[in-house]
Computed example of a mutant assay.
Amino acid sequence: MTDFKGELAALCAAFLWAVSSLVYGRLGQRISPLELNLLKGTVAIALLIFTLLLSRDFLPAITPTALSLLLLSGVVGIGLGDTAFFTALNCLGARRALLMETLAPPITAILALIFLQEELSILAWCGILLTVLGVAWVVTEKVPSSSGPTHLLRGIGFGMLAAIALASGAVLSRAVFATTNISSLWAALLRLSGGVLILLPWLWLRQKQSRSQLETLPSIPVIGSIFFAAFAGTYLGIWLQQTAIKFTAAGIALTLTNTSPLFVLPLAVCLGERVSLRASLGVVIALSGIAVLFYLR
């Protein structure tokens, strides 16, 4: 009997990431991307540790190499990738920034081809082309309320950086899962720890160079928003993603978790943002490319 548990979990993860991205986009007006990434990572780590203690899930034996790869995966994918994504959010808005993130799956396939010798079919490369075209179609759209070409180019650059960093982190994690029996919760905790640890000296150097310190602590509403976004987008998002991979094929799970832009469109309309036909078509083209890449390769 098919209950579509994995598919539903993947769609729920995509919805939660879409909602949290809108929250992060508003928080980015008050908190820098670096500080926001550090705060949400700290909250998610605390929630993961609490869950591990409740489930009595103890860390299995793991080699130093595997441990280093997981930490490096967090440094690249979370420390660098999420900070770049939050910067793209500030420049492009949630709709465009999430669509830029749809580049991560095809970039992952390219990196796997180079470093893991995973060959791709012609249909897979067609999927990559469709995804790139869909992203280009939307991010080059002229929006009257946009911040101008300088912010657009900056957002595209950080969006590309985020996609490459997220893809690199995913390949590093996949290498560890292939050789160890570590649980998804422990892998998530180690990756988040690596991402947060690299942010601490990064933030210290930035504040030292600018000779500035945080003038005031975040207000209670801002702290509540950070906790909600970290709980929904990072903690629950990781759990639902792993549930999807457990109960359905990885390609299907990854495709469905990248449907966040589809959820952002109605959410953006509810927030008063006008979504053009061109933006909608770009989302469809990009997601069609991802579907081709993972279903038909």
Rank of each mutant, 00 (worst) to 15 (best):
M1A: 10
M1E: 07
K5R: 15
E7F: 08
S21R: 05
Y24K: 04
R30T: 11
R30K: 14
R30N: 06
S32T: 15
L36V: 09
V43A: 12
I45F: 07
L48D: 00
L53A: 11
L54N: 08
S55T: 15
F58T: 14
I62K: 04
A66T: 09
L67F: 14
S68Y: 09
V76N: 00
G77N: 03
G77P: 04
G81H: 11
T83S: 15
T83F: 04
T87A: 12
C91F: 13
C91W: 06
R96F: 05
L98T: 05
L103Q: 01
L103F: 05
I110C: 03
L111Y: 08
F115K: 11
L116T: 11
Q117V: 11
L123M: 13
A124R: 06
C126L: 15
G127V: 08
L130Q: 05
T131Q: 03
T131H: 04
V132I: 14
V132A: 12
V132D: 02
A136Q: 03
E141S: 08
V143E: 15
P144C: 00
G148A: 11
L153C: 09
F158W: 15
F158L: 05
G159M: 00
A167W: 00
S173C: 10
A175R: 15
V176I: 07
T179M: 11
T180R: 00
S183W: 01
W186Q: 09
L189K: 02
L189P: 01
R191S: 00
S193E: 08
P201L: 12
K208F: 10
R211L: 11
L217T: 10
I220G: 01
I223H: 02
T234S: 15
Y235T: 09
L236T: 04
G237W: 01
Q241N: 13
I245N: 02
A249K: 13
I252T: 15
A253Y: 02
L256W: 01
F263T: 05
L271Q: 14
G272N: 08
L277R: 12
S280P: 02
L287T: 04
S288D: 12
S288E: 09
A291W: 14
L296G: 03
R297A: 05
